[in-house]
């Protein structure tokens, strides 16, 4: 991937940040985003991320809504005692705590091992890290 020298004139005039915040300096050697987007390395990054993030989001959302729906419509089940005065509802709620932290740690591990290296690869190919 080469970084294009195409001057992004119409883009920078519309740029969100306005000229007042021109600490971005060298606007002219902006990378060729379309080329990066179409590169196989970027494609892999996007696929990897989406394959983890979307199913995981669906999973925790469904799991949480199960809890919420049981709390609303399953009073009998949620009131069942598990041990002492601790009932299903409380246990179910605490399981949400456990699952949340588990997903946080899973994602952290995944991002460290699978996402960050791929991001570095794409950045390197795009020449974005020249100091």
């Amino acid at each position: 991937m080469t970084k294009a020298v195409r001057p992004p004139a119409p883009i920078s005039s519309e740029r969100a940040t306005g000229p007042g915040f021109a600490d971005r300096g060298t606007e002219s050697d902006e990378p060729d985003f379309a080329a990066i987007q179409q590169s196989p390395e970027f494609d892999l990054l996007r696929k990897r991320l989406r394959r983890f993030v979307f199913p995981m989001s669906a999973l925790f959302f469904c799991w949480y809504m199960t809890f919420a729906l049981f709390s609303a419509y399953g009073h009998g089940f949620m009131s069942r005692k598990v041990f002492g005065s601790v009932n299903m509802g409380t246990v179910f709620g605490l399981l949400q705590f456990v699952s949340t932290i588990t997903i946080v740690l899973l994602y952290r591990g995944f991002a460290d091992k699978k996402i960050d290296p791929q991001v570095d690869k794409v950045r390197e190919l795009a020449g974005a890290d020249k100091e």
Binding site: G25, P31, Q37, F42, V119, V122, R123, A128
Partner: peptide, 14 residues
């Protein structure tokens, strides 16, 4: 393209 690349990699966010 610019937004997606930037969102995923931080390229261009200076």
């Amino acid at each position: 393209a610019e937004m997606e690349v930037r969102a995923l990699t931080g390229i261009g966010s200076k």
